[in-house]
Amino acid sequence: EISSIQKQLTEILKLSQLSRSEQVGLLIEQKKIPAQYQVLLQKFNSISFELAKITEKLIGMEQTASPSEETLEDTGNKKSGGEETSAEIEEQPIATPPPDLSPQQVFNMARSDYLKGNFQLAVEGFAIYREHFAESPLADNALYWIGESFFSQNKFEEAIQKFNDFILIYPNGDKIAAAYLKKGISLMKLNKKDEAISVFRLLISKFPLEEETKIAQQKIKELG
């Protein structure tokens, strides 16, 4: 057993000497490299070392910044809760105007909001008017101005819906030509060229003497 151990120690010593001789050989070979290349080699080694340190820092930062699955789930739950709240708000019934206000005063308040640029308040005001004074002479105008209020907010789909309602419910209303015109312009804004041209042509054929017809003709020229 002792002789076996001695043999193993001898082999280890030989390997150690061989490793040292290889290291010396590498140093000798390195000395043969021209000086300018040795400088480049040193710079390369230095850059590699710095890159390694930067990589370690980036990995540490990424691990710190990555949110846990539990956090993401909590965020999703909170968002879902917020959406439900918005839906509940949209489903709230239309408010009742104060009893001491006349229909004309309610209409004027909504119209005033529109002129001030408070378009969403105007939508709500005109909706209140239509809900509680549906048989009044200005009920058709209230619907038209709801469409105009959506149009002014660049909510063109909603505007088109209200102008369509106006055209269907009040075909003889005093805002009928304007409703056709604004419907056509809303379609233009949505890049629905063919539909817009059809609406403008219908306006021209139905109401050739109205001022809106001149605008419709100009819009058709713009669309080519």
Rank of each mutant, 00 (worst) to 15 (best):
D165R: 14
T85S: 10
E56G: 00
P208S: 10
N154W: 06
S102L: 11
E124D: 13
A177N: 10
S152F: 05
L51K: 13
K193T: 10
A52M: 07
A139S: 14
N45V: 10
S152L: 10
I5P: 00
Y129H: 04
I94R: 05
V199R: 04
F133I: 04
I33F: 04
K53Q: 04
K193W: 03
I176N: 09
P67Q: 01
E90M: 12
E70V: 06
L168R: 09
L187I: 03
I220P: 03
Q92H: 05
T55E: 11
D100H: 07
M61S: 03
A178W: 04
E69V: 06
Y180L: 13
G60V: 00
A35R: 12
L223G: 02
Q218P: 04
Q23G: 15
K7M: 03
E73D: 06
G82F: 11
Q8M: 07
P99A: 15
S152R: 12
L58P: 00
S186D: 02
K183D: 05
P171V: 13
S205M: 13
F49C: 04
L143S: 03
A178N: 14
N154L: 12
K43V: 14
S102F: 04
Q153V: 06
I28H: 13
P93C: 09
F49S: 12
S48Y: 08
K155V: 04
G173C: 13
K193M: 05
I128E: 14
E69I: 08
S80G: 02
Q17F: 07
W145A: 05
Q104C: 05
K189Y: 05
I128M: 15
L143N: 04
G224I: 10
Y170M: 07
L26Y: 12
I169D: 05
E62M: 08
K182G: 07
K78G: 00
S19G: 08
E158A: 12
L41Q: 15
Q217L: 11
